[in-house]
Structure formats: structure tokens, C-alpha cells
Amino acid sequence: MTAVRELHVARITEAVAELSVRACTELGDDLVAFFRQAITREESETGRDVLAQLLENAELARRTGVPLCQDTGLAVVFLEIGQDVHLVGGSLEQAVDEGVRRGYTEGYLRKSAVADPIGARKNTGDNTPAMLHTRIVPGDKVRVIVVPKGGGAENMSALGMLKPSQGREGAIDFIVETVSKAGPNPCPPVIVGVGLGGTFEKAAYLAKHALLREVGSTNPDPRLAELEDEIERRCNALGIGPAGLGGTVTVIDVFVEELPAHIASMPVAVNIQCHSARHKEVVL
């Protein structure tokens, strides 16, 4: 019999608080490497200038602790909880929210959550609630991933319940059209997270989860890897470029996740992530 490991939820609060601040100020090495490489192939001079600004911005944020972007997002939190972990010391959801509250308040991050979204739109004051996704996985560890998600790129995302007859071409057209319509609005170059199949909500979840992949990594499924390359080529041919001022680098990467779908359905979700693709994680 496997022993159950106890973990106090206060550890999760601390992790969420710390990761929120680090995510907003320390751009990932994979993105920094991408910008450096992209400058060498961007054909537009204005585009190259924008990429240089983004590198300087990342360096400044890391050195001074001023957030990379003023939109420090809603706090999306993924928890992968080992099934041999017993969480003690209080409510898990409250612990996560407390982490967000602490990180966003003590870290001088912007609180961007408003209650009554179609009415009063009153700021909740502490950026709670977290947008929490939990998964139970084998093992006795808890993986905490914090993804501050800005509104500008989120607003350009889309979900299509396409007809199965539209097939692969129809799915690609929908994805490229979503990036095309977004134009300069979501702060390109963007990461395109795609969720294929599943149900309405699962497709959207997959698209968001796909954004966590390392920039430059290859999909282990050759069929999806080929699909990602094709979508990337077509998006870069749109000419949108860095900051939308025209150029050849519109997309940082395309990440696809997939599930089987209902015989009647072909859900395609597209979650757009701005170039300030912030996520940090820790395993407890």
C-alpha cells in the first residue's frame, strides 16, 4: 500500500504568490531566445525595432522588478495533484485565492478582475478569484503552474463548433482566420494555442493548456507537428508582423492538443497568447 503524503495548503498559497510575481517580471528563457533569433529573420525594419524593444523590456523587468506588461492578467492556475497527496490545513480553493491576493497585492501587480461582468463591473480589489484548473495525477507531488493571462489576447480567442465535413482544411482556415482577424490587437507575435476535439469546454481547456509548452519544442505526435508547422507558415504569411506594424514574424509558435470528439462534432478552440507569454511553475 502506498503511503499518503500530507501537504499543508499554506505551501500552495506561498507558491501561487511567488509564482505570480515571478511570472510577471521574468520572461522565460525560451521566449528571450525566440526574440533574439526572430530579429535575425524579420524582414521589416520596424518589426526588428519592436523585437529589440521587447528584449530590452524583458531585461529591464528582470533587473528592476517592474512588470513586463501593465496587464498582469487574471491569474490562471493549473494544479496537478498527486493522488497520494492529502491536502491539510484548510480549503484548497481558498488557499489558491489567498496566494493570488498576496502575490498581486504585495507584488504591486495590477488587479484586473471585475465582478458583475455585464453590469457594474466592480473591481474585486485583489485579483481573485483565480481561474483554477485541477487535475488528479499519479504520484505524491503537487505541480503548481501560474499563468497571468492578459485581456487583450484573450479577447481575440475563439471557439468554433465546426462541422465534421469541414475537415482538416476547415479547421486550419478557422485557426488562421482567428489570427488574421485579431491583427495587431493581441500584441503579436503571438503563441497560438489550439484545442481540437473533446466537448465545448474541453476544447477550450486544451487550447489554454497548450500555451504551457516550451517555445521551439516539437509536438511528439508527427501528425500534429506537421499541422502546427502548416498553421505557423500560413499565419506568418498574413504579414501582420511584430506589434502588427507589418512583417514576417506574426507567430512565435503554434501548439496543438487533441482529444477524440463526438461523431457529430468537430470543436476547434483557439486561445491567443500575446508575446508576453508568462507562466511559472514549481513542484511541491
Binding site: V66, Q70, G151
Partner: peptide, 22 residues
């Protein structure tokens, strides 16, 4: 069009880039 992050003590302003104009 900007909604900056709160300034830390001693700072003029926090992070202060543009938001979507549309």
C-alpha cells in the same frame, strides 16, 4: 489608453504600456 500597475515606493509609475484601443 493605459491602466498602469501600482508604483512601488519611490517609483513614479508601475508598468505602463498601451491597452487595446478598439
Amino acid at each position: 489608453f493605459v491602466g498602469p500597475t501600482p508604483p512601488k515606493p519611490g517609483q513614479v509609475i508601475g508598468s505602463a504600456g498601451p491597452t487595446t484601443s478598439g
